[in-house]
Write a protein that binds this DNA or RNA. Structure first.
Length: 671
DNA sequence: GCAAGGTC
């Protein structure tokens, strides 16, 4: 029988696909020298033209090769850093990956075909090419095909095994391009910064390198940007009209439709007109059903945002813990952009497993007994992995750490919440006309909590009851006055906000964003500090009481409580639950960003534009509009110019950075 | 001693 070699991107996929194809459990054969990769052997009929084959299914563990400069460039002072823009680059297999490469070389020998099962994304295409190169070392004529699959459902995998595609060289070339540019630019700029600043003070000898990276700098830029917004903020006074009416022993506070105005005289005039009217009139009473949507299936970015918000872990920690849960088989693959479950997926088995929990088992059973609703679909699908979900039940107290227990619990609850019904309620809005002005108040009655019963991370509660009002009813308000206040500075960035910004601006990937944040902390560009004082306002602060009471009905997932009418900063931002750490730049971080800004470059390295430009160029490579050589050349030219510009301003760089070296190393900025 | 991207 003819032999075929199949290779997946990671061991878990090799195992899953092998078992699906074989239709039974296939024993794993270990690979000498490699802890994680295994070989699976079985017979399988691929259909024409391959038909019945002897299959060896194995995997790599991500990229096989790394890219680095010719070793002669190891010495930072032996060559000018600009030489790194053109220095020879080697692509080679690192020692840890040698056993994996050797396994492929060995198994390719005697195989007539290589069938590649890497993830269907750009990196996956590149990994496929690395695998092909390894196989060709021992079998130059091996036929190479690629499988295209977007999940590991049995039927889908069987389908995929019968269609043979070509590796996409263009996508692989785009990855090589990113690799080369990030290396050349990152290394050249890092050496420039580190060496320029080293002579500024003897204190520098024990400093970490002052690194530059195409993701590190925009990440730092976001933090510094917010820092200046906070520092440069000047409060503005405002005024507004507040109306309160007592009815059936209840205080009902009506808020002004205009919100607030920054001109006191105008408010006084409008207020006098209200008073002159004496009577306020109920113009409309609206009662309508409202709902709070259950969450979407969980992506990596959401896991990181929610983990930092609800569990108070930093995103790097969340990912480390999630990877460990994945490796032990408790949860599905934790790196995914997909927020929709394939309609063909049977989710019941995963819910059944959770029914034995003492904490949420009863709830899970309720879903099985009829409460189940297939999850909503978000807009993202990476065509490689399903949303993050629990695959097996584990008693939380048997997990290794408290963090593992909490992350696991979150993933399970999130999954059960996804499979539940929306929370339902009824909202009442009372519109009021008072003289020329309009006011309103609203109340919420939660009727069915549904998913909220298993998802304590979100709140949606009934407001205090409103007394009945009838349309057309008039009354003289118990109290009406002008309330003054002033706008307050925004808060420093929090980690979930930073992740959101990075995600929106394409800085890093779902799997690397947490690492970039961790890296700029390690470089002492930013630090996380505990929030000081009791929760700051959300952009306004009032002089008198808390105007505007109670909850308002909410559509689309935003928490309902205390809708202050302003920015929709969602649950967990302060919220009276301790407050998240704030990300603040260090003196060094601010100095670097401000200095780059002062260079007046066409495109600032501290902004996401350059990274976005690169993404556009990479897309052009994938579409065949440009070649790797062209893109590397034009990009390198851009950075050569920036390099030249920054070289002229070394004196200024030293100047803006020196005070901090000369003063106490741990000198802090004023926050 | 440099980057960012995979994966364990």
């Amino acid at each position: 029988m003819r032999k075929i070699l199949c290779v997946a991107e990671k061991p878990s996929i090799a195992k899953a696909v092998a078992n699906h194809l074989a239709g039974a459990h296939v024993p794993a054969r270990s690979v000498t020298g490699s802890t994680y990769t295994k070989n699976y052997e079985f017979d399988y009929n691929f259909g024409p033209p391959w038909n019945q084959c002897r299959v060896v299914f194995t995997s790599v563990a991500g990229h096989l090769t790394v890219t680095d400069f010719d070793p002669k460039y190891k010495n930072w002072r032996a060559f000018p850093a600009t030489e790194l823009f053109e220095a020879r680059i080697d692509v080679f297999v690192k020692d840890d990956n040698k056993p994996i490469e050797r396994n492929i070389e060995q198994e390719a020998r005697g195989a007539f075909a290589l069938f590649i099962w890497t993830d269907c994304d750009r990196e996956g295409e590149h990994i496929g090419m690395e695998v092909r190169n390894a196989a060709r070392k021992t079998n130059a004529n091996i036929q190479v095909k690629r499988a295209i699959f977007s999940n590991i459902e049995r039927a889908h995998i069987i389908e995929a095994s019968r269609r043979f595609h070509e590796l996409d060289e263009k996508q692989a070339a785009a990855v090589e391009t990113r690799n080369e540019l990030d290396l050349r630019i990152g290394a050249a700029f890092t050496r420039f910064l580190t060496l320029s600043l080293q002579k500024v003070s003897p204190k520098l000898e024990d400093r970490p390198v002052i690194s530059y990276g195409s993701c590190q700098f925009p990440t730092l830029g976001f933090v510094v940007d917010r820092y200046w917004k906070v520092r440069n903020f000047t409060p503005e006074p405002f005024w507004k009209i507040a109306v309160m009416h007592q009815k059936q022993g209840m205080d009902v506070r009506f808020t002004w439709k205009r919100g607030h105005l920054f001109d006191r005289m105008t408010v006084v005039i409008l207020f006098e007109r209200c008073l002159a009217a004496k009577h306020a009139r109920v113009s409309k009473v609206t009662k309508k059903p409202t709902r709070k949507y259950r969450p979407l299936p969980l992506t990596t970015v959401e896991l990181q945002k929610n983990g930092t918000r609800f569990l108070r872990l930093d995103s790097k920690r969340v990912m480390t813990v999630a990877e460990s849960l994945y490796n032990k088989g408790w949860i599905s693959y934790p790196r995914t952009e997909t927020d929709q479950f394939d309609k063909a997926t049977n989710l019941r088995p995963f819910i059944e497993k959770q029914a034995q929990s003492t904490q949420w088992g009863q709830y899970a059973q309720g879903l099985l007994d009829g409460g189940f609703q297939f999850p909503r679909s978000g807009r993202n699908n990476d065509k490689a992995h399903p949303p993050i979900h629990p695959v097996n039940f584990v008693f939380p107290n048997t997990l290794a750490s408290d963090d593992e227990r909490r992350v696991y619990e979150f993933i399970v609850r999130r999954f059960l919440a996804c499979c539940s019904a929306d929370a339902l309620g009824e909202s009442t809005t009372i519109d009021l006309t008072y003289g020329p002005e309009r006011f309103a108040t609203s109340g919420l009655t939660v009727l069915e909590k549904n998913y909220l019963d298993v998802y304590p991370y979100e709140r949606w509660e009934s407001s205090a009851q409103l007394p009945p009002f009838a349309e057309g009813e008039t009354f003289v308000p118990t109290e009406a006055n002008i309330v003054d206040g002033k706008t307050t500075a925004p808060d420093y960035l929090t980690e979930p906000e930073l992740i959101e910004l990075m995600d929106r601006n394409g800085i890093g990937t779902d799997a690397t964003m947490a690492e970039h944040i961790s890296k700029v902390k390690e470089r002492e560009y930013i630090r996380a500090v505990a929030r000081s004082g009791a929760g700051a306002g959300e952009g306004e602060e009032e002089g008198q009481g808390n105007v505007g009471r109670g909850a308002r009905g909410s559509r689309g997932g935003r928490g309902g409580r205390g809708g202050r009418g302003g920015r929709g900063s969602s649950a967990g931002r302060g919220g009276g639950r301790g407050g998240l750490d704030q990300l603040v730049p260090t003196q060094l971080g601010v100095a670097l960003i401000d200095w780059y800004e002062s260079l007046n470059l066409d495109k600032n390295v501290a902004k996401p534009f350059l990274r976005k430009d690169l993404e556009v160029q990479l897309k052009a490579i994938c579409d065949g509009a440009k070649t790797k050589t062209q893109v590397v050349q034009t990009e390198v030219e851009v950075y050569r110019e920036i390099y030249a510009r920054q070289s002229q301003q070394v004196a200024l760089l030293k100047a803006v950075c020196s005070p901090m070296w000369l003063s106490d190393r741990d000198a802090r900025l004023q926050y």
